[in-house]
Amino acid sequence: MMMSEKRVGGAFPIVWITIAAAACAPLLLWLRSRPLLSPDVFDHARYNAELGYQLTTLALAAVMIALVYAMTGREGLSYLSLKKRDGSIRPEPWIGIKPKAGETWRHLGLNFAVVITLVTAIVIYFQIVHGKSVSFDLFPGIPLILAFALVNAFCEEILFRFSFVAVVSRSGYSPYLAQGLGAAVFGIVHYFGNPGGIVGVLMAAFIGWFLAKSMLETKGFFWALTIHFLQDVVIFSALFME
């Protein structure tokens, strides 16, 4: 059967999910500066601001899940599984991904989790921490770092990875389309994020591409969420030490 015969719904689902995900990028930046919620739970203003932002993005992620479900049904939601952690690796020689015999996503996911986290730590140190005096609250600082990192990673993976992966896969298009869209949107929005600037764009674009690849090839959410969570632990730790 030819690829064109396998496609479901034509290009319209791809167009709509791209519009929805692309709209979320500036919306998140707007919500950072103009929060819809202003909780007064903690003594630290940064903690309260982050709590309000994360609660809002959770609602946004729920809307995106509902939208994906409307387009793909249960087939699309299957990519949210945390139990699917393994799968064959599609070689990407241009980026150095040349799996050896017997090497699967259990190996690649762990290796890249370590590498990406270390690279993020180095970049964040020089962009945020270096040359500044820092202080840190063990409590509630550490529990909030872990909680915010998990929520932020989950929401951004829903908005900028799961959305593309589920809809593109259901529509029968090339996985590289989902990876490219995930890389482009995630990369552009990080020009104004942490890490930021051109370095932030390049890092985020690669990570967006790689995490979409992980979802497509494992058919699950585990490595995308885990790697993004570890990154965000580093980022929130630096931000909360300012």
Rank of each mutant, 00 (worst) to 15 (best):
V123Q: 00
K132W: 13
K132T: 10
R74I: 01
A66H: 03
L55R: 01
Q127D: 07
I65H: 07
T56C: 05
E103Y: 09
A70G: 05
A101D: 15
P99Q: 09
G109L: 07
T57Y: 04
E103W: 01
L60D: 11
T72F: 03
R90W: 11
G76I: 00
D86Q: 06
V114D: 10
I124P: 00
L108V: 14
K98Q: 09
L55C: 02
T57I: 11
L58V: 08
A62F: 06
R74N: 14
L110K: 12
T120N: 12
R85P: 02
G109F: 06
I122G: 08
L110F: 11
I116N: 05
L58A: 03
R106K: 12
A113E: 02
Q127V: 03
L58P: 13
K84F: 11
R85W: 02
M64D: 01
M71W: 11
Q54V: 02
V115E: 14
V123L: 05
K132D: 10
H130W: 15
K84N: 14
K132V: 06
I65E: 09
K100S: 12
R74G: 15
K132P: 02
M64H: 13
M64G: 07
G96F: 01
A70V: 13
L60A: 08
A62E: 06
Y79P: 05
L82D: 07
V123G: 01
R90E: 12
A101S: 13
L82I: 05
I97H: 00
V119N: 12
S81D: 06
I128F: 14
S88D: 11
L77C: 05
H107V: 14
L67C: 00
T117L: 11
